[in-house]
Write a protein that binds this DNA or RNA. Structure first.
Lengths: 201, 201
DNA sequence: GTCTATAGCCTGATAGAC
DNA sequence: GTCTATCAGGCTATAGAC
């Protein structure tokens, strides 16, 4: 009930939340300003009070969707223990993270497809650089014969591709519902990599 | 110089080729019928002589971009040799295939994001089922303790994610131009999996 | 801070001449 | 088989009342 917080709904935040939904579902050019305003229960013109134009709204939405992700992902690698334990831990936590915020993953995929250089550079430095560095440091200990940059990408791809292909996997031979379970995915990735991890010599 | 083929430019094919470019670059809703007609040097109205509407043009474009891919990918797994040789061969060929037709990969990614159930079901059965089956059969011989469906997805993801992340990798620590070289990617994936392959017991 | 009204342009699609 | 002309509606964005 304090004067500045709570109680009053922050329209800006409502817009960002709905915009995140819609941009994830349909992409930038698949969503109109009217669509976003509509799901917020306001007129399109009112939206321009909060954001100067559609592009700025999109950028603010990305910032909203991507903020704190750097911390979340990086945190996932800072656990103590042996390299193998830390990797196992990372796989489990990263998988859960991606399963818990599917819109973040989808928006990231869309940015990889449509983002201009400036946006990607910003995302790389502000969001992914720190956690990526943590992962390369980790895998360097485990598999020194591999290029750490490539191995970090491989590790992420190994996990993310299962989510990415979920819509089509159900129509492919052997596809089961359980293959979408983050725990099953994590276990599979760990099993696949286990031999690689066991003999670092 | 025969009467029915060559010589005369097939407008329909020109449209499909240009549509493939544009849909890959900007997605379905990021491209207008006028845009496509423009790159073909014709008016938008003329395009409707060849396709009933935009949706049909898009579907025809997917068919054009995806046709023969089933053969190409499946072919890549039919080489003779030991399981390990065949896997190594598959990795090299699949990587080259994806590097040679980046628009196919991009359109596939867009379909995974935006495709409705019907389209994905069709793509799964007409394009990916056969080669996917070939891959699961292969990996089943190599790593019987893994779920073949999941392992096939992992294998594809391991390769594709390097292409998918190319736009942002250059801004991430340790990123080099050589990481985009299909030969380097294939070698990396093989090295990563080599320990897993060596002791199938 | 939200509304109505509207400008100006782009959209998918059609009609009909050639 | 391509063109011009056009429609009806959607788009982003602005103006100005409340």
């Amino acid at each position: 009930m304090s004067s500045k917080s709570a109680k009053k709904i922050d329209t800006r935040l409502v817009i960002l939340r709905n915009a995140k939904h819609l941009f994830a579902q349909h992409g930038y050019s698949g969503v109109s300003v009217r669509d976003i305003a509509g799901t917020c229960g306001i007129q399109a013109a009112s939206l321009y009070h909060h954001f100067p134009d559609k592009q700025a709204l999109y950028l603010a939405t990305m910032e909203y969707a991507f903020s704190d992700k750097a911390d979340e992902i990086a945190e996932v690698t800072t656990i103590a223990g042996s390299p193998k334990e830390r990797l196992s831990d990372f796989i489990g936590r990263f998988t859960t993270l991606m399963a818990d915020d599917p819109e973040f993953r989808i928006l990231l995929q869309r940015e990889l497809l449509d983002g201009d250089e400036e946006r990607l550079k910003l995302a790389a430095h502000e969001v992914f650089e720190r956690p990526f560095k943590a992962i390369t440091d980790l895998v360097e200990e485990i598999a020194p014969e591999c290029d750490p940059h490539m191995l970090a990408i491989s590790l992420a791809g190994l996990i993310l591709f299962h989510f990415e292909t979920a819509p089509i996997r159900r129509y492919l031979p052997g596809g089961k519902k359980s293959h979408n379970d983050p725990k099953v995915i994590a276990e599979h990735v760990l099993t696949l990599l286990s031999r690689t991890l066991e003999s670092p010599q």
